[in-house]
Amino acid sequence: MATRRNVLLGTLSTVFAGIVTSPARAAASAPVRIVAFGDSLTAGYGLPADAAMPVRLERALRAEGRDVRLINAGISGDTTAGGLARLDWALAEKPDLAIIELGANDGLRGIDPKLTEANLDAILTRMNKAGIGVLLAGMLAPPNYGRDFETAFNAVFPRLAKAHGVVFYPFYLDGVAGKPELNQPDGLHPTAAGIDVIVARILPSVRTLLDRFAARTADRSR
């Protein structure tokens, strides 16, 4: 009788332990949620859904054994002001990390770089308060607004990255801009091949973002 009682107690203890630890295990095994917050260059303008940057980036990271989920929060035509206006929607996705790719349309429209900087600064501040690690993707100004505009615009991104201490990728279209074979007929939006180049070049910076997140998570669990 005593033996049966001991076995029963042992079984109950095991079940109870499983109930207590299962939420923690579930949290530990949940994929890292990364919101790709940008404009048409993120959304995948003119491309099949499976060729958009977030889809291709998720595939590349999973091929490395990283458990991630990319959320495509790109809206074609969005400016930094538009991104700031819809930030609550992106935060509602409860991301762990964010890749911010905004500013190309500001540059194309000749928006005052001071406004671009103020909008991005507000976005980064909100992300920081929410505890979301950020990779900021920089953009370069088109040449048609003159040297002063170009200098002011191009300085916005590295300055903000330094001020907020975020991971910085200097030029989102590196290796793609100005190459007809990697762009759609409009000369502005990458083809699927162009997206693959973007993913390959930004991947080391995304790894840094993920490694920072892993280190921060480990510190919190101690």
Rank of each mutant, 00 (worst) to 15 (best):
Arg62Thr: 04
Phe157Trp: 11
Leu182Cys: 04
Ala161Cys: 03
Arg69Thr: 10
Leu182Arg: 03
Lys129Trp: 08
Leu9Pro: 10
Glu93Tyr: 02
Leu108Gly: 01
Leu173Ile: 07
Val134Ala: 12
Pro170Leu: 09
Thr11Asp: 03
Ala36Pro: 10
Pro185His: 05
Met53Leu: 15
Arg5Tyr: 11
Lys129Cys: 06
Leu61Ala: 02
Ala73Cys: 09
Pro158Asp: 05
Ala193Asp: 15
Ala90Ile: 05
Asp96His: 15
Ser29Gln: 15
Asn72Gly: 07
Ala104His: 08
Leu61Pro: 00
Arg4Lys: 11
Ala49Met: 09
Ala214Leu: 08
Ala155Gly: 07
Asn183Gly: 04
Gly44His: 08
Lys129Glu: 14
Phe213Asp: 13
Pro113Trp: 05
Gly18Arg: 06
Leu41Val: 04
Asp106Ile: 11
Pro54Arg: 01
Val35Met: 13
Arg159Asp: 15
Ala141Thr: 13
Pro95Tyr: 13
Thr217Pro: 01
Asp148Glu: 14
Phe171Cys: 03
Thr125Met: 02
Leu188Met: 08
Leu188His: 01
Ala2Asp: 13
Gly83Met: 06
Ala60Ser: 01
Phe157Ala: 08
Gly44Gln: 06
Asp67His: 15
Asp39Pro: 10
Ile34Cys: 00
Gly103Thr: 08
Ala104Trp: 12
Asn119Lys: 15
Asp67Gln: 13
Gly146Glu: 12
Arg69Met: 09
Thr11Phe: 06
Ala17Thr: 10
Leu182Asn: 05
Asp121Asn: 12
Phe213Gly: 05
Leu124Cys: 13
Ala163His: 10
Ala215Arg: 15
Lys162Met: 00
Tyr169Pro: 03
Glu101Gly: 04
Asp121Thr: 07
Ala81Ile: 10
Val206Asp: 00
Pro113Gln: 04
Gly146Thr: 07
Asp211Trp: 05
Asp219Ala: 15
Arg59Gly: 02
Val55Cys: 03
Tyr45Lys: 12
Arg147Pro: 13
Ile75Glu: 10
Gly38Pro: 14
Asp78His: 06
Ala192His: 00
Asp186His: 03
Thr80Val: 09
Thr116Val: 04
Ala63Ser: 14
Ala200Pro: 01
Arg5Lys: 14
Leu120Ile: 11
Thr79Cys: 11
Asp148His: 12
Ile19Val: 07
Ala161Ile: 10
Glu150Thr: 12
Leu209Ile: 14
